[in-house]
Amino acid sequence: MPLKWVFYWKPNPGTTVNSQILAEVSQCAEAINGIKDGRWKVNLTYYKPIFRDQAAVSEIPRDFIGMSLPERPNKFYFTLKNHRIVVEADLSIQNIMEKLQSYRSRVTLVFEGVQYKLGDFQLRVGKVVPSHQETLRGIVMEVEYLPISSMEKSRQIMDDFTGIWQETLAKRSLPGQFVCTEPNFSEFGLADNYTPQHTAVQYATVMADLIASAQSVTSVRN
């Protein structure tokens, strides 16, 4: 399957993310001849443990993430970042989790936006919003390269493409930049050949970065 890198928008210190940035990024994609090619959407849910009495059980994870990805609409993915676990299951696993009543789905975030086609690349730019709300919590971008599945073999061309794209964006002097923290996929038992599990791990990493970024903005304000 094609591989992708997932980026999040890191605002400059003292600034916050806003929909104007998203609009400008989209304009930029069109300016470099990106052809609109439909919409995309990722749903990501935080599961939190339920305890029968107040005392939390120490070895239980504070939360984990469940998500559905457009590249495998009939599958569901769980990531447990601290344990370096990513699991692929059927959609019915959500029903099982509900019946077990040991974890509750708390917050669902929706990543959605427009997909652009640029030759062998696909660029997806979208907003991060809590489900049923319009409050913008972040901006994400996926860069997908269609012909190759090997992470290593595609590294050079992905670097080149994202370099050109970042330069194009830089000309607009936007208050921040797209950042991609590459997870250590091998720690999750994932090989060089790209799979949807790689995408799930990247989204879990992006979420951790988005939360850290939001917390640093809050601490700057305070």
Binding site: E59, I60, L80, H83, I85, E88, D90, S92, I96, K99
Partner: peptide, 20 residues
């Protein structure tokens, strides 16, 4: 009776151990 099944990747046992 109610019964729900889901296929899963091979690390699903490790996942449930980690969940408690």
């Amino acid at each position: 009776r109610t019964m729900v099944e889901s296929k899963a990747s091979k690390n699903v046992l490790r996942f449930f151990y980690a969940l408690g």
